[in-house]
Design a protein around this nucleic acid. Structure first.
Lengths: 296, 296
DNA sequence: TTAAAAATTGTCATATAGTGGAATTTATAA
DNA sequence: TTATAAATTCCACTATATGACAATTTTTAA
């Protein structure tokens, strides 16, 4: 049986005060639209597209309403995974992982496998005494293989990579992040994907800076740092995106400190902290403050 | 004939390295998927939903790719209208309007009429010697009637209202903006609509502040100003949305000046300007500076 | 190469998406 | 109320989306 999209459509149509006959005109027959709206028939993608267009509504919004104001399954998956990760809820992580593994075995579709891998990465960070301690090298290799193969990176690939990059080797991160930047180029005007690209670039830079307890060591990634900063500057941050700009300022400050220009770096980070406090974004300000303290 | 969605699906499937048989498993027959992917058949909405889910892709992104990386028709409409408005291109405005009027007459669907109205509002602002000088009162009434009637405001209603509110009477704006705020509540986790709500609230506040050349007059909208500011503060601006926070700071400054607390107001606006300059958002900083100069 | 396996396409049968128009219900107006 | 029109549903029918399985092409592996 099919989902009863029609009833949702009818609700929307009624709200807009459009009669069934008028909506159908030029698209399909009145009798069929009636049948569909009552939930007595599924509908062809082509017809649905044209009906929604006439109702001034896009597919995403329609499905959001239809699913009782819940995001789509893919976003729900990433969202719950992230939430479980932030809450260090290893039970939920395990449950999520098993769900994906089950689907992988059932259908043999690799993407479910990658999803399980993403969660495994989360698990290994949350639980330090993780059985395997590190995620199977074979699996990681499998995932990066996939990412290299895909020709256009969309929301899925970017979000997947974003969650796993912390566990990859530097060489791999350099190549994959560059690939991510290049192969998502066509999506740059599509907000959701654009945000995902930006996020990948930020995480890449954070990766190269390394954990705070190693800030006294030599910094071998100057070239890479500048490469990814330049991607961000040239393409990703419009003047109006102040949040990302503050974030960038913070990272540049950390870079200065990392490479010896302590005073400059501290000045930048303090400026970022001050900006955030001026705008009452105190939690974000505190985070940077903490970070700065740990570095010093 | 139908659009050949199938070929796009095939491309995506191949990229992900998933075999036709595996994608079809549990959803539809192999032979049908093959036929669909070759463009020899349309497909039911129900099947398509499940196929895309398995490919880890949402509808919006799929259609974006299918339409050669162009946004959907609705967004295109609003986008081109706004662009023509900013460029003061009255030829394009006229063309757009006629397109919508034509569809209105052809189908009798009122939404096309509202779209034409939106553009008429733009025209009347761009061309001061506009024939009717002001948009027909009857039409405006018709539009606000619609907005009052709709029970859930989505992206369309919010964007439509956002573009026309400047020409409405204060009483109407108070009621409609409040309605917009309340009746879009269920969408607050849906980014696109959330942004549209925020934008409506900002424009409402700007409306009440009035044009710069009347800043010396009495300010009769204290209550309303505070009402809409509170909506913004409570619900609309998460800590991470610095751009909106700066914008809010600017408006609070303008409010102070408008209501007599000059020094306080100037201080706030200067702070906003400084914040923007610190982040190299010079165009935005200049805009505020211009605004401040005109007020004084 | 070549044989075997895997993946895709073609053929035909059937379920169901979709149509035209009559019948029914609902809204409108006197 | 009652008559009239408008909107929706019902019904018989057609077109096409979808399935089962055989035929063909492509890939894999020796």
């Amino acid at each position: 049986m099919f989902e009863e999209y029609g009833t949702t459509l009818r609700m929307i149509r009624k709200q807009k005060g459009i009669t069934l006959k008028r909506l159908a005109e030029g698209i399909c027959s009145v009798s069929f639209l009636s049948k569909f709206e009552r939930g007595d028939s599924d509908i062809t993608l082509g017809l649905m597209t044209r009906l929604l267009e006439k109702l001034m509504m896009n597919f995403d919004e329609f499905l959001y309403i239809h699913h009782d104001f819940q995001p789509d399954k893919l976003e729900q998956f990433f969202q719950t995974a992230r939430t479980a990760y932030f809450n260090r809820d290893d039970n939920q992580l395990k449950e999520l992982k098993n769900g994906q593994l089950k689907k992988w075995k059932q259908y043999g579709v690799e993407t479910y496998h990658y999803n399980a891998l993403l969660i495994e990465v989360y698990e290994s960070i949350v639980d330090e005494h993780y059985k395997n301690n590190s995620v199977q090298e074979y699996d990681i290799h499998h995932l990066s293989d996939y990412l290299f193969r895909v020709e256009v990176w969309g929301y899925y690939e970017l979000t997947l990579y974003n969650g796993t990059l912390l566990l990859l080797e530097p060489d791999m991160v350099i190549m994959l992040s560059r690939t991510a930047y290049e192969k998502s180029a066509r999506f740059r005007d599509y907000k959701k994907v654009h945000d995902a690209i930006t996020s990948v670039l930020f995480n890449t830079i954070i990766y190269f800076l390394g954990p705070v307890n190693r800030f006294h060591e030599e910094f071998p990634f100057q070239k890479e740092f500048n490469e990814f900063i330049s991607y961000l500057e040239i393409i990703a941050i419009p003047e109006s995106n102040l949040t990302d700009r503050v974030h960038l300022l913070q990272l540049k400050g950390a870079y200065d400190i990392r490479t010896g220009s302590k005073d400059e770096g501290i000045a930048k980070m303090n400026k970022a902290i001050q900006l955030l406090n001026d705008l009452n974004s105190t939690k974000m300000a505190n985070n940077i403050e903490q970070y700065l303290l740990q570095i010093m």
